[in-house]
Design a protein around this nucleic acid. Structure first.
Lengths: 202, 202
DNA sequence: CTTTGATTTGAACGAGTGTTCAGATAACTC
DNA sequence: GAGTTATCTGAACACTCGTTCAAATCAAAG
C-alpha cells in the first residue's frame, strides 16, 4: 500500500473545498462550473471527483460543516443562568462568529434552494436548533420578568435577522470597529426585549 | 401601420416578466434558462427577444421596477412630523409592502451579484435612498430627544434587517396573522430606539 | 530498481446554454 | 378581398455543462 502518508489528497482536498467556497460565495452555486473550481486548484475537472461524488455534495458539505462549526462554537461558550447575561453572550457570539466567516454564512443562506430535499431538511434542522437556543433564553427571561416579549419565537427570529444584517454591510476599516458594532447591536437587542424599568413612584 | 391595438405583445410581454420573476425567485437567475421562461409562457425561446434585449435586462428590469414601486409607494404614504409616528408608519409600511411581493423582494436581494456593474450601481442607489429615509426619521427623533440612538445609520440598517427577516419565514395561515407580526415588530423597533422613560422621582 | 496503487490527465459523452435570423403566420388597416 | 407588419417558429451557431473513465504519472514501500 503506497502513498498513505504525504498523499496529495491531504493538500488537494482542502484546496478544492476552499476554492468551491470562495467561488460559490462570489458567483453563486449555479453560476460556478466544476472546471472553474478545478482551475482555481490547478487540476483538471475530472480530478475533483476524487474529493466529492458530485457538485451537490460539495455544496452540502460546505453548509453542513458551517452549521456544525456554529453549533460546536456555541456549545463551547459559557451559558450564564441570568437571561440578560445569556442574551448578551448570544448576541456578541453571533456577531463575532458570523463576521469571521462571511463566505460560509453567505452560501448557507443564499444556496439553500440548491440543496436536494433531504439535504435541505438536514441543514434546516441544524439552523432551527440554533434559533431554539435564543428562543429558550428569551423564554427564561420572560419567566423571571427580565424580558417583556409577547412572542419569544418571533422575537428570536427578529433578533437573529437584525444580527445577520451586520454581515451584509459591515466592512473592516470603516468608521466603526466590529466591537463598536457589537455594542450598538447589544444596546438595541437589550432594549427591544427588556421589560420597562418599573417607574419610581417616589 | 397594422397591429397597433390588441397586439399579442400586450399579453406576451407581461407574461414573460411574470414567468421570469417566478422562475428567478424559485431557482435563481443563473439556474433558469431562456427556454424555461419561454416554455412557461408558451412560446419558443426566440420569441422572448421581442420583449427583452437579453437575459440580463430581464433581471434588471424586474429589480428596477420593484425599487421604483417601493419608492413610489413610500412617497405616497403620509409623513408625520412626529418622529415616533413616522417610525411607526415606516415600520408598518415596510412589512406590508414587502409581504405583498415576496418574489420581487427575494430576487432584488439575492440576485444583486448577477447585475452588471452599472446596473448594480443603479439598484444600490435606489436602495440607499430608501434606507436614508429611515435614517432621517431616526435623526429627527434623536434631535428632539424622542429616540436614544448613538448611530442612526447603524440603527437604520439594523431595523431594516429585522423587518426584512419577516419575509424569510412568515407564511400566511400560521398561528399569527400579518397584523399581529406587524404589531410585534413595531413594539420591538419602538423599544430598541426609544429613549428610556424619564424616571419619575416622586 | 521494481512494485504498488493513489492521483491526475485528457478526451469523450450527451445534453443544455444565450442568442440570431430567415421564413412562416396571423391580426390588423384600407 | 389585398397589403402590411407585428409576432412567432424552428433551426442553427458556437460554447459550456456535469460526469465518466482508460491511460498516464509519480511518490512511497519493499
Amino acid at each position: 500500500m503506497a502513498r498513505t502518508q504525504g498523499s496529495h489528497s491531504d493538500i488537494t482536498g482542502p484546496r478544492v473545498r476552499e476554492a468551491a467556497l470562495r467561488l460559490f460565495a462570489t458567483h453563486g452555486y449555479a453560476a460556478v462550473s466544476m472546471r472553474q473550481i478545478a482551475g482555481e486548484v490547478g487540476v483538471q475537472a475530472g480530478a475533483l471527483y476524487n474529493y466529492t461524488p458530485d457538485k451537490q455534495s460539495l455544496l452540502f458539505d460546505l453548509m453542513k460543516g458551517h452549521m456544525d462549526d456554529l453549533l460546536a462554537a456555541r456549545a463551547a461558550e459559557p451559558g450564564p443562568d441570568d437571561p440578560l447575561a445569556a442574551l448578551e453572550g448570544f448576541t456578541r457570539f453571533h456577531i463575532r462568529f458570523h463576521h469571521d466567516r462571511p463566505d460560509e454564512v453567505f452560501i448557507s443562506y443564499m444556496e439553500l434552494r440548491n440543496l436536494s430535499p433531504e439535504n435541505f431538511k438536514e441543514i434546516e434542522g441544524l439552523r432551527r436548533s440554533y434559533e431554539d437556543q435564543l428562543e429558550a433564553i428569551l423564554r427564561r427571561g420572560v419567566a423571571i420578568g427580565a424580558f417583556d416579549v409577547a412572542e419569544p419565537k418571533i422575537a428570536a427570529m427578529a433578533v437573529i435577522a437584525m444580527l445577520n444584517g451586520v454581515n451584509t454591510w459591515f466592512r473592516e476599516g470603516g468608521r466603526l470597529s466590529l466591537p463598536q458594532i457589537e455594542q450598538l447591536h447589544w444596546d438595541m437587542v437589550r432594549k427591544a426585549v427588556s421589560a420597562p424599568e418599573p417607574p419610581n413612584h417616589g
